[in-house]
Amino acid sequence: MNQFKTLALLALLSGLLVAIGYYIIGGTSGIIIGIVLAAVTNLGSWFFSDKIALAAYGAQPIGPEQAPGLHAMLERLSQRGGIPTPALYIVPSPAANAFATGRDPQHAAVAVTEGIVNLLSEEELEGVIGHELTHVINRDTLTQAVAATIGGAISQLAYMAQWASMGAAYRGQDDRRGPNPIGLLLAAILAPVAATIIQMAISRTREFSADAGAAQLTGNPRALASALQKLQLGARQMPIQGNPSFEPLLIINSFAGQGLASLFSTHPSTEARIERLLQLEQQMLATGSHSFS
């Protein structure tokens, strides 16, 4: 069901890009330009999303000799997940957070901050690594990159629409050959908002799956639940500094609202995530699948 919802949201996002291209340029030409722009941005994100995300947070590669425990943990969980061990990066920040990036498991990277390594216990950190590896296994990192680039293209087109609406208004309503200035203005205002809500909905859909995957990889849902509690408090006190467009990649953000506010959150509420993890723990205990030998 989550996969279907994600595909549906991506399709809606792509359709929004094509629609705003139609409103700005009009006719078949606008549709074609929207499709071409989507293809170009998606191709760029497919090849370079990992490098861009790592650079956005100043992540640096860290070798086994520098962090033997982290590397052993990453390798162990990767073997359980049946994927190659991703490259490991450290973010020189006291903020506690982590993310994964890369177009597929063969080109993946996991990044953790200095703050999260110092804050969490070994079991809690293992839960975080399992969460990020599940994103890699599920190819969520590519999905988020595609969503981010389409959203960025929509924002650029919306900026163009603002200028086009000013030009259409200047020509006057008697010029029926130009685009409708009201339609252009609505596209310029509403399209980026809609794109942002869709991007965030995609991210929220994938976070629950990654939490469940971490529980399966580690056999310890409660450890991740404990980590999320600590991380939520830390994120409010000391949010990580970086490009906001990459916030959906992070394991936690400083704002996860309830109700209407949740539309503008990149993550589900931490309380909901913890509740699901504890429910999963009970299920795993009941079936005897809560530990690894």
Rank of each mutant, 00 (worst) to 15 (best):
L184H: 15
L184E: 11
L184R: 08
L186G: 10
L186Y: 15
L186W: 13
A187Q: 03
A187W: 06
A188P: 04
A188N: 07
I189T: 09
I189G: 02
I189F: 02
L190H: 08
A191Y: 00
A191C: 13
P192V: 13
A194C: 05
A195G: 14
I198A: 06
Q199N: 06
Q199C: 03
M200F: 04
A201V: 05
A201G: 04
I202M: 10
S203E: 13
R204F: 12
R204W: 06
T205Y: 08
T205C: 06
E207A: 09
F208W: 04
F208K: 07
S209I: 13
S209Y: 09
A210K: 14
A212M: 11
A212T: 06
A212E: 07
G213M: 01
G213V: 09
G213Y: 09
Q216F: 11
L217H: 01
T218L: 00
G219S: 02
P221R: 05
R222E: 12
A223M: 02
A223C: 04
L224I: 14
A225C: 09
A225Y: 11
S226C: 06
S226A: 15
S226N: 06
S226E: 14
S226M: 04
A227V: 01
L228T: 02
Q232S: 12
Q232V: 01
Q232Y: 03
L233F: 15
L233M: 15
L233E: 14
G234M: 11
G234W: 07
G234F: 07
A235H: 12
A235P: 06
A235R: 07
R236C: 03
R236I: 00
Q237L: 12
Q237V: 02
M238C: 04
M238W: 11
P239W: 01
P239S: 04
P239L: 07
I240D: 00
Q241T: 08
G242L: 01
N243Y: 07
N243F: 01
S245D: 02
F246G: 02
F246P: 00
E247Y: 15
L249D: 01
L249E: 00
L249R: 15
L250S: 05
L250N: 01
I252T: 12
I252E: 01
I252Y: 06
I252M: 10
S254I: 02
S254G: 13
S254A: 09
F255V: 13
F255D: 12
F255T: 07
A256C: 11
Q258I: 04
G259Y: 04
G259N: 04
G259F: 01
L260H: 04
A261S: 13
L263V: 09
L263C: 14
F264P: 07
S265P: 12
T266K: 05
T266S: 14
H267E: 10
P268F: 05
P268N: 08
S269I: 13
S269C: 04
S269T: 14
T270D: 13
E271G: 01
E271R: 02
A272L: 10
A272V: 11
A272D: 11
A272C: 10
A272H: 08
R273S: 01
R273V: 02
E275T: 01
R276I: 07
R276Y: 10
